[in-house]
Design a protein around this nucleic acid. Structure first.
Lengths: 152, 152
DNA sequence: AGACGATAGATGCAGTTGCATCAAGCTTGA
DNA sequence: TCAAGCTTGATGCAACTGCATCTATCGTCT
């Protein structure tokens, strides 16, 4: 009836690695974007989702579902994106509360530029370090750690 | 002579998983601490390092090396820890600029309480989801992604 | 219709981060 | 010895985050 619930050494190590490596890689990618005078990664996530959504655009709450951003975060991020002229906010016909966010040409172009840098970071930081099989294995293992039965 | 450097699908997927899962898990752990009325994770990292260092304490710049925090971040974090009475700042004999940070009984106790919650999170979020072998594999694969030849 | 609760999104405020810069002490080299 | 440059740590300021709350609209139930 030992009360101690200290995790196994393997779990601790995996956790530590996960936290440390993900932070490091994220910072590297962020740094690369900044060095190219481009917006931060968060913008990419949103622009990416909006680009995939196409002309129909997305409602802010859909962006919240697809990304991991909090509501207030999305709200302000979209305000910045709009202020920078990368997206447009349109009223929604059948819901007076809502709005539809649509990426425009400007936004697509920014996303393209970001991807040129971001993609290179991914290749260098991850693609070049592990084989395709190993990468698949990482994805599979990490997939089992997802909290809710999320999609991607 | 194709200029395109888009990463492989496997690399993209592994990257996305890594970013998403690590954020999710971090948030879960953070949430658990908050729910128990305990300080944020960042405090744990520092208290942990200081506890390992023992009576000799550590210089702030050593904490920077051991954790992934920026200099200004450590500076302010230590100020908060001191204000909360968890650590002490001592002058250093042979370097008038520096100081030594030493964890005190109060800090050790807080660290203990945090570990009770944090450790449980690690067990639930990671230890319970993968076998020891799988966890070891994750650590090994992630280890190959570390930027500099870091220690941990 | 009208009231009640739920949902969509914005926002005031306090705390934190990132950036740039600063002051103080150390080290080196002529 | 002392100027120039490096290292250690702090800090002013702007941007961002987290929290709580607010407004407006929607849907439902009576």
């Amino acid at each position: 009836m030992t009360e101690k619930a200290t995790p196994s050494p393997e779990a601790i190590k995996a956790w530590a690695r996960l936290m440390r490596v993900s932070r490091q890689l994220m910072e590297s990618a962020e740094e690369a974007l900044k060095a190219s005078g481009l917006p931060p990664l968060a913008w990419y996530d949103v622009l990416h989702e909006l680009a995939e959504a196409g002309e129909g655009g997305l409602r802010p709450f859909q962006l919240i579902e697809r990304t991991l951003f909090a509501q207030y975060n999305i709200s302000r991020l979209l305000a910045r994106l709009e202020a920078d002229g990368l997206v447009e906010k349109l009223p929604v016909a059948d819901d007076g509360r809502g709005q539809t966010i649509r990426i425009n040409a400007n936004g697509r172009e920014t996303r393209r530029q970001m991807w040129a840098v971001y993609g290179r970071s991914i290749t260098e930081l991850v693609g070049a370090k592990l084989s395709a099989d190993e990468l698949t294995m990482v994805s599979a293992l990490l997939g089992r750690l997802r909290q809710p039965p999320a999609s991607d």
